[in-house]
């Protein structure tokens, strides 16, 4: 790399790291949203149960 190796490789490495990071971040975001929506009906059900108990 004609003396510029460190610069070229660090630019590439940083790019790869950030791109992988945002890709995994998007995946995590989606998965967390999926879990939140899975939990949502369950949470509502438990609230309704307590109302039933009060009655």
């Amino acid at each position: 790399m004609g003396g510029y190796g460190a610069f070229v490789w660090s630019a590439w490495g940083l790019t790869a790291a950030v791109l992988v990071w945002i890709a995994l971040g998007a995946r995590r975001h989606h998965q967390r949203a999926l879990e939140a929506t899975r939990d949502a009906p369950a949470r509502r059900a438990s609230v309704q149960a307590t109302v039933e108990e009060v009655k």
Binding site: I22, A23, A26, R27, H29, H30, Q31, R32, A33, L34, A36, T37, A40, P41, R44
Partner: peptide
């Protein structure tokens, strides 16, 4: 495009809960 789709899917799920 690919990352955007995954993120939009997440956002859609969050907005449509229930």
């Amino acid at each position: 495009g690919a990352i955007l789709m995954v993120r939009v899917r997440g956002e859609v799920l969050l907005r449509e809960q229930g």
